[in-house]
Computed example of a mutant assay.
Amino acid sequence: MPRITALPTDQVRAYQSGAPDAYGTPPERATSTGTGNPCRHCLRNIPAGAEMLILAHRPFDEVQPYAETGPIFLCATQCERHQDTGTLPEVLTTSPDYLIKGYGMENRIVYGTGTIIPAESLMETASSIFVKPEIAYIHIRSSRNNCYQARLDRDA
């Protein structure tokens, strides 16, 4: 089964310390409503009333035509990075469906892999995409707002 990969801790700690986001601005601080505010590091919903960060994130190292940038939420205080246990983390169980897309080694979308799928079919569908040898990883995004959720990597 594919492995769910959350944002790296060093990157998140930098944002939590005020490092600029993908647009060069410091993360905004807000209060979580408790729903619809998934942290991309611990992959849990940020509890109602807790402080959170809102920032522009580009899950690619370089700017290029396929390097989508969009808003994400993070816990404002330090949280533990999600460790894949083989079950879906909380943030991937709160929507009825998700958008997934496969990417090649050059960080370009592999056409024909993008699909909106029911949450319960996420891992099975991702496994079928990973059958293609040109797929390096898969992004999971919100099917309604296109916000980046997490990355899927081949199981080691």
Rank of each mutant, 00 (worst) to 15 (best):
G112D: 01
L122V: 07
K101T: 15
G112F: 04
P96D: 12
K132M: 14
I4N: 03
P47E: 00
G36C: 04
M52W: 05
P26A: 14
Y111P: 07
I140Q: 04
R40G: 07
N37R: 04
S32G: 08
T113C: 10
L55E: 12
A126H: 06
P65W: 13
G36K: 01
F73D: 02
A67T: 07
Q149T: 12
Y15Q: 05
K132I: 08
T33G: 13
L88R: 06
A14P: 03
A30W: 01
L53W: 09
A48E: 08
G112W: 06
P2C: 10
T33H: 13
C39G: 06
Q149W: 09
N107P: 00
G34E: 01
R29H: 13
T31A: 14
I54N: 03
P20H: 12
E106K: 15
I54E: 07
M1C: 00
I117R: 12
M123Y: 03
I100A: 05
T85K: 06
E62F: 05
T113M: 06
D153T: 10
Y15V: 06
K101D: 07
T77D: 14
N45E: 15
D155T: 09
Q64M: 12
T9L: 11
T87V: 12
D84C: 09
G34K: 02
Q149L: 14
P59E: 09
C75S: 15
T87E: 14
G49R: 08
A22V: 09
I72R: 02
A119R: 10
D21A: 12
I72G: 07
M105S: 11
D155S: 09
I46T: 03
A14V: 09
L55R: 10
Q78T: 13
P38V: 02
G114Q: 13
T125A: 10
E80L: 08
A14W: 05
E51T: 15
S17T: 04
V131D: 14
G114M: 13
G49H: 03
G70H: 01
R3G: 01
P71S: 11
E90W: 01
V131M: 13
R144L: 13
D61E: 14
Q11C: 05
I72T: 11
C147P: 00
A22W: 00
D155Q: 07
K132P: 02
N145P: 00
S127F: 04
I129L: 15
A30V: 01
I138L: 10
P133V: 02
P38N: 06
T9H: 05
G34P: 04
T113G: 14
E90A: 07
A56G: 09
Q11T: 13
F130Q: 11
P89E: 01
Q16D: 03
S128I: 08
N146T: 05
L55H: 01
A14H: 06
Q83W: 07
Q64S: 14
Q78P: 06
T33C: 02
Q16I: 03
N107C: 00
A150L: 01
T113E: 09
T33W: 04
A19E: 15
I72A: 05
M52F: 02
V91M: 07
I117E: 10
A126S: 11
L53S: 00
E80I: 08
